[in-house]
Design a protein around this nucleic acid. Structure first.
Lengths: 153, 153
DNA sequence: GTACCTGCAAAGCGTTTGCTAATTC
DNA sequence: GAATTAGCAAACGCTTTGCAGGTAC
């Protein structure tokens, strides 16, 4: 996502109207590395503009996604998350604290080949585990082998 | 997922009751490579057992997931999908026809390292594009450069 | 002034849950 | 016979939509 001022200019140039709500959403997202959900964006913006509605947040996030300024992440869990970093990178969800971290790794060619005969347009890699902080804590799972506590056998 | 008979024996050995509904769900899932949603499982089972309820399907799928017999896939889109193949493999969603295909590729070590200091338990790789069949069709997107129409400028 | 946008509320969808009755062991 | 499980229906969370009024240009 480009800096707020540049983004505003870009929006205007494309005929979009710049409302205070949109400006606030842009400012919240700019440089944000927390991969917020729509709900989190809503709450943050609401602190400054109590009148803002969730529908407006969704509308703006959708518009930004279509403009290619942010990307939508489907990392499991109920809600979608939004990332102002549109570079190709991967995501890690900590099963302890729930935070989502970025990370970078180069994928081999055959990943981009996909199934025989197919054409791959987009690849999303999602890892789940425990972040550095949560590993230090003596919490359940902190030293367990796996984050999947569900194996009954 | 193990063969139906073995799975039934395994369930019984763990004190689970084998109802006709569960048996039908097991049979539908065994060898199924279509990555069905809960709704699709429900409809398939309903053809033979009209009395079955969606809640039962969800319950059984949840139980199988906890047993490690199937895996839950979150591939975007509204509904979760379920895969009786629990080996580590990747998934490809065709943006033309919507089908989900399996594919295999070896990932480099650093993918499993995750962010600095973290411990990775699970990695899911999801590709989106056009499958071999859809590439042959003269449909919109069939010859386009990318399925990501979101880059405006 | 005009068209787009906001805010509100309700509907939509997939999923989960609570309770009673049926079924498995 | 005892206890788990199915069925039904309603509730839930996230997202989308319809409409009337407001606001940027």
């Amino acid at each position: 996502m480009q800096p707020v001022d540049a983004l505003i200019a870009h929006c205007r140039a494309h005929g979009m109207r710049m409302t205070v709500q949109r400006r606030a959403i842009f400012q919240y997202l700019w440089g944000n590395t927390k991969h917020p959900t729509a709900e989190e964006v809503f709450q943050a913006v609401q602190e400054r503009y109590p009148g803002v509605s969730l529908a407006t947040v969704y509308n703006t996030l959708e518009t930004l996604t279509q403009m290619g300024e942010i990307q939508r992440l489907d990392l499991g869990g109920a809600a979608e998350r939004f990332d102002p970093d549109v570079r190709v990178h991967h995501h890690f969800t900590c099963s302890g604290c729930g935070q989502v971290l970025d990370y970078f790794a180069v994928l081999p060619e055959d990943v981009f080949a996909g199934p025989p005969g197919a054409r791959v347009d987009r690849v999303q890699l999602h890892a789940v585990g425990l972040c550095a902080d949560c590993r230090k804590l003596p919490l359940p799972g902190g030293s367990a082998k796996s984050a999947n506590p569900n194996l009954s056998s």
